[in-house]
Simulated assay, not measured.
Amino acid sequence: MNTQLIKTVLLAIMVAFPGVIHAQIKFTYDNAGNRTKRELNGSIVLVDTKVLLRGAYRTGQANMATDLQTYFSANSGLLPATDPYGGNVGYNNIGNPAGVAGPVVDWIKIEIRDAANPAVKLQSKSLLLKPNGSIVDIDGTLPKFVGQSAPVRLAIFHRNHVAILSNPIAAFNAGTTIYDFTTALNKASQLPGDAAQMGVINGKWYMWAGDVNNDLSVDATDMTIATNDFMSGLFDQYLPTDVSMDGGVDATDGSIMNAAFINGYYSTLTNYVP
């Protein structure tokens, strides 16, 4: 028996939503508390989706920067070991690009929402964003969600970017769902009259930066928070106002924030607040 595999946890997912098929997930952890294995039993959907963050995605670069993961050294960065979205998800090796999840840009969150009424949240999971835009679980594999019998949408949240919502996904009951937000503006759902939900660099579409207080829009409150941190000269910290995601609040962040505020970026999810 491999002595590293010292703890096994069996989690029965019993989600009380119409049409949800019950499933079981068995997790195995190593001595450091990192998940090393996951076994599934039941109807599970793997979500293979990509998003890019404006702050970490820069002109002329193929992938997003991972400055926050390796800010101090190859094994010491600013990313927290526990997710910032209240999901109580932990990844002890988040500062190590050689860890099981590999290079990481930041924590990110996916919500599964009802397609007909996106105000209804069916599932939520805190995950990791890779430099190429792929979203993975803390063991480096595609995130897994419980299958649904009705169409759904994906809602993507980041701590200082404007959230986006997918178009309806008709089949979400088994197999793998592939959804790449980076390929076209219309991959992000947008109601008539709403602002464009994404911007484009290098022919790829990204999430707008600047929603530092996570209220689905970039407004005067965000600007006040960002200005205060800029005037305080904050750096070497994991800050929502560090929208360029390089470890400090500086003129680059101010430029991004000003553009976001002037253009009045907001999420179409504002139409679906419960």
Rank of each mutant, 00 (worst) to 15 (best):
S267K: 02
S267T: 12
N258W: 15
D229E: 15
K144G: 09
S166W: 07
Y179P: 08
G203S: 15
L234S: 12
M231V: 13
F145S: 01
S232I: 06
Q237E: 12
K125H: 00
S124C: 02
G175M: 07
A163N: 05
T176M: 02
L142M: 00
G147I: 06
A209I: 03
S126W: 00
T252C: 08
V152Y: 04
M245R: 13
D250R: 09
D246C: 01
K204W: 10
V136R: 08
R159D: 12
L154C: 06
S124T: 14
V162E: 00
D242W: 05
H161M: 08
T221D: 12
G147P: 08
P131K: 08
I156V: 14
P168R: 03
S124I: 05
Q190L: 13
N132S: 13
D242Q: 12
N132M: 12
Q237A: 14
Q237R: 12
V200Q: 13
M231N: 13
V162N: 01
A188S: 14
S166L: 12
Y265M: 05
L127M: 01
V249H: 06
P131W: 13
F261H: 05
Q148W: 09
L154Q: 03
P151H: 04
G247T: 04
K125L: 03
A251V: 15
D242L: 08
S189T: 10
F235N: 15
Y238K: 02
Y265V: 09
P192L: 11
D215M: 11
V218Q: 01
I201N: 14
V243C: 06
S244K: 02
F172D: 07
A260K: 09
A155R: 09
I169A: 01
T227W: 11
F230H: 02
S244P: 07
A155Y: 05
H161R: 01
V146T: 06
L142Y: 03
P143A: 08
Q190A: 08
G247Y: 06
P143K: 00
Q190G: 13
A174K: 15
T182R: 07
V146S: 00
I138L: 01
G193L: 15
T182N: 13
D253L: 04
D242P: 11
S244A: 11
R153Y: 01
N202L: 14
V152C: 04
T224P: 09
Q237D: 14
P151C: 01
V212H: 11
W205K: 09
G175I: 02
I164L: 04
D139M: 10
I256L: 15
A174C: 02
T177L: 12
G233N: 14
N214V: 05
S189L: 12
L191T: 03
W208R: 13
I169P: 03
A174L: 10
D246M: 01
F157N: 06
A226D: 12
D194H: 11
M223C: 11
R159E: 10
L191Q: 10
G210E: 07
D229G: 08
K130A: 11
N258R: 12
S267A: 14
I164Q: 03
L239H: 05
G248W: 00
R159Q: 12
V218F: 12
I138G: 00
S232Y: 10
S267C: 11
T252W: 06
K187C: 09
V146Q: 01
L185W: 00
I225C: 01
